[in-house]
Simulated assay, not measured.
Amino acid sequence: MDITKRFDRLLGIYFYLQSKPLVKAQDLADKYEVSLRTIYRDIKSLEQAGIPISGEAGYGYSLMNTYKIQPMNFTEQEALSFGVAEKLMQHYLDKEMGTHFSNALVKMKSVLRFSDKENVADLESKVLINKQKNFLNENVPAALAMLFESMVKKKQIHLTYKSVESNLQERNIEVVGVYQEGQFWYFLAYCHLRKEVRQFRLDRIEHIRLTDLRYTQSLKPLHEYLEEQKKAEVIISVRILVKKSIARYLHWERQYYGFVREVEKGDSVEMHFQTSNLEHFARWFLMFSDESIILEPEELKLKVKSVLEGALKNLK
């Protein structure tokens, strides 16, 4: 047995327990890539070392809330991650959440060794991430922060929301969870107007405020709703043949259209996709259709033909 590796894992488990109110053994097993039996032995070892752990197998573990020790110094690699993390969060979070994160990071940087502070400052000047237009809602800079606050306080949010048809609608919602996919932030919420859980996009919020109304629904975890949505989708297999000279340009976007795999066929590449929206796929395909062939399905050919006929009509 690698004693050093086990010691590092025991120490990691301790700090993981200190960072969360409740930790499941399976989560620890997944994190450290070991068996559940190994985690049970590790927990027992920590208890024998005098660390007050409550809970049991099958439920979860937690530390007594009054038990704390001073944090260890950050390693050089951990310290350097702060510089990159701040740049990323400035890109992925809206203005208010970004400010909160930056303030928290300043406090964490304050405990770094002087040499690590110099390295982090030097790295920050060498990392640039360009914020994409419409990725966040710049007109409502506190939107993301308010969604998080709503979930923590279990209080409803009042939205003025722009639909796909650009109609403004007011509605009260109970937020299930927030997730980022492709070019946008999305959130699922129970909508009191529609009486069901609906998907919303952050950049379509026109106005948002936290109300004093409590949640009324028993909401499931976010991942369960997303899994249900995925199961309900009608998935269509697509195969296209793309010239190698143009295929390399598809790498940047193809994952957003359900890319599965590719196979070289002479001077071309056969690409396989799984999509639930042929209309969406057809319009993307048109960008390189002069160098590509649709192998299947026939319905996709009809979609592309329909879009082209509409375009030609408009040109006339």
Rank of each mutant, 00 (worst) to 15 (best):
residue 59 Y to G: 07
residue 69 I to K: 09
residue 72 M to N: 01
residue 60 G to P: 08
residue 39 I to Y: 03
residue 53 I to P: 04
residue 67 Y to N: 04
residue 61 Y to A: 09
residue 73 N to P: 12
residue 54 S to P: 00
residue 51 I to E: 02
residue 72 M to K: 10
residue 50 G to C: 02
residue 68 K to T: 13
residue 44 K to M: 06
residue 50 G to Y: 05
residue 48 Q to A: 14
residue 67 Y to L: 01
residue 51 I to Q: 02
residue 55 G to F: 02
residue 70 Q to F: 09
residue 44 K to A: 13
residue 62 S to K: 14
residue 36 L to C: 01
residue 62 S to L: 09
residue 42 D to F: 01
residue 61 Y to K: 11
residue 56 E to Y: 02
residue 63 L to F: 02
residue 44 K to E: 14
residue 41 R to A: 01
residue 69 I to C: 06
residue 42 D to V: 05
residue 67 Y to W: 12
residue 71 P to D: 04
residue 71 P to G: 02
residue 59 Y to P: 00
residue 62 S to W: 11
residue 44 K to C: 06
residue 72 M to W: 02
residue 48 Q to M: 12
residue 42 D to L: 00
residue 65 N to L: 08
residue 66 T to M: 08
residue 54 S to V: 13
residue 42 D to T: 07
residue 55 G to C: 12
residue 64 M to C: 14
residue 44 K to G: 10
residue 39 I to P: 05
residue 45 S to N: 12
residue 53 I to D: 05
residue 72 M to T: 10
residue 72 M to A: 10
residue 61 Y to M: 09
residue 68 K to I: 05
residue 35 S to K: 01
residue 43 I to Q: 03
residue 66 T to Q: 11
residue 47 E to Q: 15
residue 60 G to H: 09
residue 56 E to S: 14
residue 37 R to M: 11
residue 67 Y to M: 01
residue 45 S to Y: 08
residue 55 G to M: 10
residue 43 I to N: 07
residue 57 A to Y: 11
residue 62 S to Y: 13
residue 59 Y to H: 14
residue 59 Y to R: 15
residue 51 I to A: 05
residue 37 R to K: 15
residue 39 I to E: 07
residue 52 P to H: 02
residue 36 L to V: 08
residue 41 R to K: 07
residue 60 G to L: 04
residue 70 Q to L: 12
residue 45 S to E: 12
residue 37 R to P: 01
residue 73 N to V: 07
residue 54 S to Y: 09
residue 60 G to D: 05
residue 48 Q to K: 14
residue 43 I to M: 10
residue 70 Q to S: 14
residue 39 I to H: 05
residue 63 L to A: 03
residue 66 T to L: 11
residue 38 T to N: 06
residue 47 E to T: 15
residue 71 P to E: 04
residue 51 I to R: 06
residue 37 R to V: 13
residue 70 Q to K: 15
residue 60 G to I: 06
residue 62 S to D: 05
residue 75 T to A: 00
residue 65 N to K: 15
residue 61 Y to G: 10
residue 52 P to V: 05
residue 62 S to M: 11
residue 73 N to Y: 05
residue 43 I to R: 03
residue 71 P to N: 06
residue 61 Y to N: 07
residue 43 I to W: 01
residue 57 A to T: 12
residue 38 T to F: 06
residue 73 N to T: 11
residue 53 I to Q: 09
residue 42 D to C: 06
residue 50 G to R: 03
